[in-house]
Protein backbone atom coordinates (compact mmCIF):
# COMPACT_ATOMS: atom_id res chain seq x y z
CA UNK A 1 0.00 0.00 0.00
CA UNK A 2 2.82 2.35 0.95
CA UNK A 3 4.48 1.72 -2.44
CA UNK A 4 1.26 2.59 -4.16
CA UNK A 5 0.89 5.82 -2.19
CA UNK A 6 4.50 6.86 -2.91
CA UNK A 7 4.23 6.03 -6.59
CA UNK A 8 0.89 7.78 -7.01
CA UNK A 9 2.17 10.84 -5.12
CA UNK A 10 5.11 11.12 -7.52
CA UNK A 11 2.80 10.69 -10.48
CA UNK A 12 0.46 13.34 -9.12
CA UNK A 13 3.27 15.81 -8.42
CA UNK A 14 4.69 15.29 -11.87
CA UNK A 15 1.30 15.65 -13.50
CA UNK A 16 0.93 19.06 -11.90
CA UNK A 17 4.23 20.19 -13.39
CA UNK A 18 3.45 18.63 -16.72
CA UNK A 19 0.14 20.33 -17.14
CA UNK A 20 1.24 23.68 -15.78
CA UNK A 21 2.26 26.54 -18.03
CA UNK A 22 5.61 26.72 -16.33
CA UNK A 23 6.88 23.66 -18.18
CA UNK A 24 10.00 24.61 -20.08
CA UNK A 25 11.40 22.17 -22.61
CA UNK A 26 14.80 23.58 -21.84
CA UNK A 27 17.47 22.35 -19.54
CA UNK A 28 20.91 23.73 -18.96
CA UNK A 29 23.50 21.53 -20.66
CA UNK A 30 26.25 20.51 -18.26
CA UNK A 31 29.73 21.38 -19.47
CA UNK A 32 32.15 18.57 -20.31
CA UNK A 33 35.68 17.97 -21.56
CA UNK A 34 36.53 15.11 -23.93
CA UNK A 35 39.41 14.34 -26.27
CA UNK A 36 38.91 14.63 -30.02
CA UNK A 37 40.38 12.22 -32.58
CA UNK A 38 43.72 14.03 -32.50
CA UNK A 39 43.94 13.88 -28.73
CA UNK A 40 43.05 17.54 -28.21
CA UNK A 41 40.62 18.56 -25.47
CA UNK A 42 37.22 19.62 -26.69
CA UNK A 43 34.67 21.33 -24.41
CA UNK A 44 30.95 22.02 -24.63
CA UNK A 45 31.69 25.63 -23.73
CA UNK A 46 33.69 25.93 -26.99
CA UNK A 47 30.30 25.98 -28.79
CA UNK A 48 28.54 28.53 -26.60
CA UNK A 49 27.74 30.79 -29.56
CA UNK A 50 26.61 28.03 -31.91
CA UNK A 51 23.49 26.04 -32.49
CA UNK A 52 25.01 22.69 -31.59
CA UNK A 53 23.74 19.25 -32.48
CA UNK A 54 25.48 16.53 -30.46
CA UNK A 55 25.14 13.17 -32.16
CA UNK A 56 25.98 10.12 -30.04
CA UNK A 57 27.02 7.37 -32.43
CA UNK A 58 29.11 4.23 -32.68
CA UNK A 59 30.79 2.30 -35.45
CA UNK A 60 28.69 -0.82 -34.77
CA UNK A 61 25.41 1.13 -34.98
CA UNK A 62 24.06 0.96 -38.56
CA UNK A 63 21.38 3.68 -38.18
CA UNK A 64 24.08 5.94 -36.71
CA UNK A 65 26.25 5.54 -39.80
CA UNK A 66 23.33 6.51 -41.99
CA UNK A 67 22.64 9.53 -39.77
CA UNK A 68 26.32 10.62 -39.81
CA UNK A 69 26.30 11.09 -43.57
CA UNK A 70 23.11 13.12 -43.50
CA UNK A 71 24.42 15.26 -40.65
CA UNK A 72 27.52 15.99 -42.72
CA UNK A 73 25.26 17.38 -45.46
CA UNK A 74 23.32 19.50 -42.95
CA UNK A 75 26.57 20.72 -41.41
CA UNK A 76 27.86 21.73 -44.83
CA UNK A 77 24.61 23.55 -45.58
CA UNK A 78 24.21 25.52 -42.33
CA UNK A 79 27.68 25.89 -40.80
CA UNK A 80 27.97 29.37 -42.27
CA UNK A 81 24.98 30.38 -40.16
CA UNK A 82 26.49 29.14 -36.89
CA UNK A 83 25.35 25.51 -36.91
CA UNK A 84 27.81 22.91 -35.64
CA UNK A 85 27.58 19.14 -35.35
CA UNK A 86 29.64 17.44 -32.66
CA UNK A 87 29.83 13.69 -33.11
CA UNK A 88 30.49 11.86 -29.85
CA UNK A 89 31.60 8.30 -30.38
CA UNK A 90 30.21 5.79 -27.91
CA UNK A 91 32.59 3.09 -29.08
CA UNK A 92 34.02 1.13 -26.23
CA UNK A 93 37.49 -0.41 -26.16
CA UNK A 94 36.38 -3.28 -28.35
CA UNK A 95 35.64 -1.09 -31.38
CA UNK A 96 37.52 2.15 -30.68
CA UNK A 97 40.13 1.37 -33.34
CA UNK A 98 37.33 1.58 -35.94
CA UNK A 99 36.39 5.18 -35.13
CA UNK A 100 39.02 7.07 -37.08
CA UNK A 101 38.78 4.85 -40.20
CA UNK A 102 35.00 5.32 -40.19
CA UNK A 103 35.33 9.10 -39.95
CA UNK A 104 37.79 9.03 -42.85
CA UNK A 105 35.62 6.74 -44.95
CA UNK A 106 32.54 8.90 -44.46
CA UNK A 107 34.60 12.08 -45.01
CA UNK A 108 33.17 13.75 -41.93
CA UNK A 109 34.40 17.30 -41.50
CA UNK A 110 32.69 18.18 -38.22
CA UNK A 111 34.45 17.62 -34.87
CA UNK A 112 34.40 14.12 -33.39
CA UNK A 113 35.07 13.37 -29.72
CA UNK A 114 35.29 10.07 -27.86
CA UNK A 115 33.24 9.52 -24.71
CA UNK A 116 35.09 6.39 -23.68
CA UNK A 117 33.88 6.65 -20.07
CA UNK A 118 30.20 7.29 -21.00
CA UNK A 119 30.59 10.40 -18.87
CA UNK A 120 28.62 12.69 -21.18
CA UNK A 121 25.88 10.38 -22.39
CA UNK A 122 24.86 9.67 -18.80
CA UNK A 123 23.69 13.28 -18.46
CA UNK A 124 20.86 12.53 -20.90
CA UNK A 125 19.86 9.00 -19.88
CA UNK A 126 18.86 7.68 -23.30
CA UNK A 127 17.01 4.38 -23.23
CA UNK A 128 19.22 3.29 -26.15
CA UNK A 129 22.61 5.00 -26.22
CA UNK A 130 22.83 5.32 -30.00
CA UNK A 131 21.63 6.82 -32.21
CA UNK A 132 20.78 9.63 -29.84
CA UNK A 133 21.05 13.34 -30.46
CA UNK A 134 20.74 16.53 -28.47
CA UNK A 135 20.18 20.02 -29.89
CA UNK A 136 21.72 22.78 -27.77
CA UNK A 137 21.26 26.52 -28.20
CA UNK A 138 23.06 29.05 -26.00
CA UNK A 139 23.87 26.36 -23.45
CA UNK A 140 20.27 25.10 -23.20
CA UNK A 141 19.05 21.69 -24.32
CA UNK A 142 16.11 22.33 -26.61
CA UNK A 143 15.55 18.93 -28.13
CA UNK A 144 16.56 15.32 -27.68
CA UNK A 145 15.98 12.58 -30.23
CA UNK A 146 16.13 8.80 -29.87
CA UNK A 147 16.41 6.55 -32.91
CA UNK A 148 16.87 7.62 -36.52
CA UNK A 149 15.25 6.74 -39.80
CA UNK A 150 15.63 8.69 -43.03
CA UNK A 151 12.04 9.89 -42.75
CA UNK A 152 13.12 11.91 -39.67
CA UNK A 153 15.34 14.16 -41.82
CA UNK A 154 12.76 16.84 -42.74
CA UNK A 155 11.91 17.34 -39.04
CA UNK A 156 15.59 17.56 -38.08
CA UNK A 157 16.30 20.14 -40.78
CA UNK A 158 13.25 22.19 -39.77
CA UNK A 159 14.43 22.24 -36.13
CA UNK A 160 17.79 23.55 -37.30
CA UNK A 161 16.24 26.21 -39.50
CA UNK A 162 13.81 27.33 -36.76
CA UNK A 163 16.57 27.68 -34.21
CA UNK A 164 18.98 29.52 -36.48
CA UNK A 165 16.50 32.35 -36.94
Amino acid sequence: MRTLIIALSIAALSSVSFSGEALAKEGTATNFTLRDLNGKHIRLSDFQKNLLLISFWATWCKPCLVELKHLEKLYGKYKGKGFVVLGISMDGPETQANVKPTVQQYKLSYPIAIDRETRVVKYYNPKHAAPFSVLIKKGKVIKTRESFQVSDLPAIEKEIQDNLR
Binding site: L4, A11, S14, S15, F18, L23, A24, E26, G27, V141
Partner: peptide, 19 residues
Amino acid sequence: AVLCSLSLSLLPALAVAKD
Protein backbone atom coordinates in the same frame (compact mmCIF):
# COMPACT_ATOMS: atom_id res chain seq x y z
CA ALA B 1 -4.88 -4.76 -11.84
CA VAL B 2 -3.25 -2.54 -9.22
CA LEU B 3 0.17 -2.97 -10.88
CA CYS B 4 -1.26 -2.23 -14.28
CA SER B 5 -3.12 0.87 -13.17
CA LEU B 6 -0.09 2.04 -11.20
CA SER B 7 2.12 1.82 -14.27
CA LEU B 8 -0.44 3.50 -16.49
CA SER B 9 -0.88 6.30 -13.98
CA LEU B 10 2.86 6.91 -14.16
CA LEU B 11 3.02 6.89 -17.93
CA PRO B 12 1.84 10.24 -19.19
CA ALA B 13 3.35 12.33 -16.50
CA LEU B 14 6.94 11.98 -15.65
CA ALA B 15 9.17 14.00 -17.88
CA VAL B 16 9.76 17.52 -16.74
CA ALA B 17 12.52 20.07 -17.05
CA LYS B 18 12.25 23.36 -15.26
CA ASP B 19 14.48 26.37 -15.03
